[in-house]
Write a protein that binds this DNA or RNA. Sequence first.
DNA 1: CGGTACATTGACTGTCATCAAGCTACGTGG
DNA 2: CCACGTAGCTTGATGACAGTCAATGTACCG
Lengths: 259, 259
Amino acid sequence: MTKAPVASAMPSDAAPAFRETLPAKDVGGAFENMPCDLCASFQPENGEDRRDAGRRYAVRRGQAIGDIAATDSWCASLATGVLRIDASQGAAPRTVGLIFPGQIVAHPFDADPCGTAVVAVTRSNICLHARGDLQHVTEHYPSIRRLLLRSAFQTLAETRRWMLVISRPRARERVAAFLVSVAGRFPTSGHDTFDLVLSRGRIGELLGLSLETVSRQIHALAKAGLIALPRRRHVRLLNRSGLEAVAGITFRHPSGAAA
Amino acid sequence: MTKAPVASAMPSDAAPAFRETLPAKDVGGAFENMPCDLCASFQPENGEDRRDAGRRYAVRRGQAIGDIAATDSWCASLATGVLRIDASQGAAPRTVGLIFPGQIVAHPFDADPCGTAVVAVTRSNICLHARGDLQHVTEHYPSIRRLLLRSAFQTLAETRRWMLVISRPRARERVAAFLVSVAGRFPTSGHDTFDLVLSRGRIGELLGLSLETVSRQIHALAKAGLIALPRRRHVRLLNRSGLEAVAGITFRHPSGAAA
DNA sequence: CGGTACATTGACTGTCATCAAGCTACGTGG
DNA sequence: CCACGTAGCTTGATGACAGTCAATGTACCG
């Protein structure tokens, strides 16, 4: 959690457009004014000032949210893109979770137990509340506070569900569970083809497998006719229920396409 | 999360003594009036009514907190004893986490994603906030609210740390990490001997190992001179730093003995 | 056009799950 | 108090599976 390379663009006003940490040309205007879950819950009729809403940023692939926030305490709502959570337990950082659009990711308020960093896996648009801002908002805005608390417990429950996946003895089941989980996350995946987002190595980290095993299992699932592999990082579901049967779990996400 | 066998003793007043779900003779008076973390944070000087504090219960071994609360939404602070969190992802319930004294355990506010139950591993004393109570308290008591939010993120961080442990390829490391973790939890363990709390089988669930492997690894650690096994479920640390080295992690818990 | 990061494939070894049998501790009831 | 039953634990043998090492292959980047 270094705070060294501060994002190039610093927030200056509260207009609801994504701030840039990218060259301006890379920014699609599509997400400007798009309300994030946190901001959408502001209730002006209750005297809540919309200008206290978080500041929006476009985040580069590989960029850490912590660097943008430039404080040790922040919270963000993900509008588009995918983030990953890396935990560095002393040694090499390992990916321990993913954040998909609609989810809220909060960085521990006081102490960071093991050094976790939140990094953009793809180009992402976030709505960020930095330290002072966040404190002020959670004190005075019950709706935000509720949402944050609820999100925390939801994330906790999901993490526990992942523990069940990871503790499976067979690699096949874990990989299948990962695929089902990611597939269920993409609202855009009407046509059953989706981006795997992570490299084989990072999938391995997440599942507690070696990258070779991940590769082999993905291809084994393809040979079994459950999925197709149009590109290296893309998967098409040929038999979703079959895949869920292998995974032993049906992931159902509140937001996004039904699993 | 069945709500069938409601605890025998129902809360009736707000006196700060542990309510009984046990025959009265089994109740030590030692914990009466002992403040739980949640209640201790009440600030009467700010107009917070201490009578809104949670109700206290002594919980039998094997009893589910959900049965006592008799609602689908509650939160409890553990004074003494150990609780376990069981997640039943469709099939057989598996233990996915432990709760030690000083920790707060909250049951999801609205939806329970995978059916998790919180069960007493040993005889425990808890301070329980049930549904309506909880909502009222979190609305009107900033200190409680803060504590709850903080606790949620802390638990999340710990759960993520467990993911790192579980995803280790070697069984030896996982078992060692479990021992180090439990050892660090007991404030009473000044003499380095502690109760393992869980059966081999449940440890296996938690670590994603078979019970036979757990047994073998524990004995292997004993043969290596890192621990001694005075009784089946008791462990004495002979070489804590050596054990931590095998585990690859030093667990440090905010409350309880230093790791 | 070369470089780099990622992915695949193969061979081999170590570890762990599984099956199976016996053992210990503990509680219950005769 | 002892006999017995059960649940949990230990120990062994075996085979499948996943990690490791290594080499090759492929896409994407400048």
